[in-house]
Design a protein around this nucleic acid. Structure first.
Lengths: 223, 223
DNA sequence: ACAAAAGTGTTCAGAGTACACCCATGT
DNA sequence: ACATGGGTGTACTCTGAACACTTTTGT
């Protein structure tokens, strides 16, 4: 049995130097056959965040994804058949090696696809606006919180890390300054491995030392 | 006719060096006679933010108050008689000269009162948690956004401004450094007036130059 | 050898931080 | 005259920003 409100989720991934958003093609009215955010009614006896995690799992096959509530949207005209309140979340996941299997096993969605920021079509409801707000939020948040690592695989190169920052912030950063700053934080652990399968000098791999990063950013919980 | 969700509002003021929160004593079950946040069901044909402004007006007699959405709360157990989703907002207002007349002209609230942070009693529902989150949010926000001015009268002294920062951040700041920094921003306009009615050297009054402050902080819209 | 990206230091300017005394005013 | 908060400057450190070349590796 469904409750009277929905959750919608802006799922961000990082691929080929770009931030991507996972959208689904709706299979229900209103806005049937239109692209929109993954989301649906919360069950009556289900915690809201559980519903979001369920939807994330249904669409990506992944659990334990970084998740934050963005905002509630309740405009009287956002839904053609009367106001339906939705609580929007954004999620950041590791889109590496296409471990992520897109499988909208729900019957209210036809297919799912990743869209780059500049490819996003007209969306159902106010979902375009929700994505805009999410982008604004992570743009601000990345400047004081290490959310970039949520978008990268466990082992990554400094160049990959820099590309995440550049993609989110929408500007190019100085390589030397970026590396200096990141390494100075002290929460990056140099691994004895290097990249494989590249036709040029292989880059050193790093991983995040979660202990140290939490110690440094402990004042940055949530907001 | 009421919708199926509520709004709750954490109203902050600044008085005698302390951040205060406006609470009301409930006159309805559940939690009758318990203190809680001002808030109520949104009308069916009413925009959510309009409902918040209405509640603010009903409690303080003020309009055009600084307002931001905090978060939605929808825990299954937050309301004894089944889940009721609430969207929490926080508001910052100028509590100067007691221009604010507390008048809960609603029939679902008995009285309203300002509480300092360390005087807050046990509250109805999850309202204590909502206040905690609001405080965390403004603590972060004041470091990158000039919300302090929302809590002050139009004309204020630099010491008053510093006291707002100290109250929100919960730590003492260096007077000389604080003044240097604030004046260097360039959005404070020195007035040809000084404080009145004090038994010591009267302090210079300043006001905010909104033009300049918006120019400097334009990247800081909303989030 | 060549193509491609990895990796690396120094200098400069501006911001943050620490710190203590005299001044103006009302009583 | 005294009590109270108002108002002021300097030195040091740290961080951010600008800037270009050599090294490594696979093909």
């Amino acid at each position: 049995m469904y409750s009277n409100f929905t959750v919608d989720c802006v799922i961000f991934g990082f691929h080929e130097g770009k931030i991507k958003v996972l959208l689904t093609e709706r299979n229900e009215y209103p806005f049937k056959d239109t692209w929109g955010l993954p989301g649906y009614f919360v069950d009556n006896d289900e915690e809201m965040e559980h519903a979001v995690k369920r939807i994330l799992y249904e669409h990506t096959g992944l659990k334990d994804i970084y998740l934050e509530q963005l905002s509630a949207f309740a405009g009287l005209k956002r839904h053609p058949s009367g106001r339906i309140l939705t609580v929007a979340y954004y999620a950041l996941l590791q889109l590496d090696h296409m471990k992520v299997k897109l499988k909208p096993i729900t019957n209210y969605m036809k297919q799912a696809r990743w869209f780059a920021e500049d490819e996003i079509p007209e969306l159902a409801f106010d979902h375009g606006q929700i994505i805009e707000l999410s982008l604004a939020k992570i743009r601000r948040k990345i400047t004081y919180s290490p959310i970039a690592f949520e978008l990268l695989p466990d082992k990554f190169t400094l160049t990959q890390l820099q590309m995440v920052y550049e993609a989110v912030l929408g500007k190019v950063l100085d390589k030397r300054n970026f590396r200096k700053k990141m390494l100075n934080y002290g929460f990056l652990k140099e691994l004895p491995e290097v990249q494989k399968g590249v036709s040029y000098r292989a880059a050193r791999l790093y991983k995040l030392d979660k202990r140290k990063y939490l110690k440094i950013f402990q004042q940055t919980i949530s907001f």
